[in-house]
Design a protein around this nucleic acid. Sequence first.
DNA 1: TAATATGTTTAGGAAACGCTGAACGACGGG
DNA 2: CCCGTCGTTCAGCGTTTCCTAAACATATTA
Lengths: 189, 189
Amino acid sequence: MADQLREAREGLIQSLGRVSAFWGFSKIVGQLYGLLYLSPAPLSLDDMAVALGASKGNVSINVRLLERLGMVRKVWQRGERKDYYEAETDFWQIVKDILREREKKEFDQALRSVSDCLRLAAEVTGRTGAGTPIRAEAAFVEGRLRRMEEFFKLIDGFVHSVLVLEDLRFPPPFGSGRGGADPAGTPTR
Amino acid sequence: MADQLREAREGLIQSLGRVSAFWGFSKIVGQLYGLLYLSPAPLSLDDMAVALGASKGNVSINVRLLERLGMVRKVWQRGERKDYYEAETDFWQIVKDILREREKKEFDQALRSVSDCLRLAAEVTGRTGAGTPIRAEAAFVEGRLRRMEEFFKLIDGFVHSVLVLEDLRFPPPFGSGRGGADPAGTPTR
DNA sequence: TAATATGTTTAGGAAACGCTGAACGACGGG
DNA sequence: CCCGTCGTTCAGCGTTTCCTAAACATATTA
């Protein structure tokens, strides 16, 4: 009975560990999220460390990464001096945060770089006489770069639309802060 | 003039190297693709090796990875004994191939695992008497797992629709094989 | 068959990474 | 003011990853 529950828990923890590793994070990041996600009550640093058999230091670093990604929240337990963490259960919120935090930065840089290269190539085609071999080459490079820029902009637009679409569905209360009530989380407690 | 062209080329190569590393591949994978993408003519193994200052072995392994991902094609030059490679320029095709090759496998496994865990937890809730503490715990875990499964299935459906949507836009000629002419690639040659 | 050209595999070293355990600093209570 | 409790940081270590150079396999030509 209880064993089966434990099995389910650990199954998810292991599984999310895999996912995490696959996406270039360390395994423990996913495991931490899985642990918190299936925990009815918030957990302390030590709770997590013993549950996963990892060192405090390791947990400290990676749980803060999760917090930076918006996948986990620090919650204060009245009377307690420890930090407690609980999982963010709104997956769309998580997707948005990750898109902003991780993808967007790196992606924007790539897009900018491609645009820069395109400008360079375009200058060459503009300034060289028609018919010269270097002109033909530059025209080719320019064409390819333009196609790539187009594609990148398409993706960028898509990401943007995901971000604003969700913002509309869960509008922030007033000026700032996180909006919308947890749509289906935390049945217990 | 020509220097500027070279600068544009190397800019893209460097940039795609970054992107590649960011997505968990080695840097040279992206660089190879950038090199081929901006090359008017197919390149041989040695061409790529000297262009990127890498060893033949390294290029051999990574260009085959690109081929497996569908980002690069082997082309035979008449009379030549070497293998030549050129870039696949249809980015949507590439996205599809990558979704199939990389994401889908790993993702399906995660989804299956979550479903398994869910089944386990559901069994516990089904078999324990109402009101017991273990029952409450199991119900909580079951609820969370169900929400996660839902989300995963949603993503799965999205990926599926991308795959079939594009298949409809570029239908394969008859029984099998790659369909649709390159929509905007290869202006030179 | 020997000689040449080409692609692949592999052994080994270098660099990067992840994790631990201990040291450290901050903070609050006795 | 000191002591215990926390969270964070960091040096060290083992593992993994990446890359090169050389050996190897295969195919082509003389």
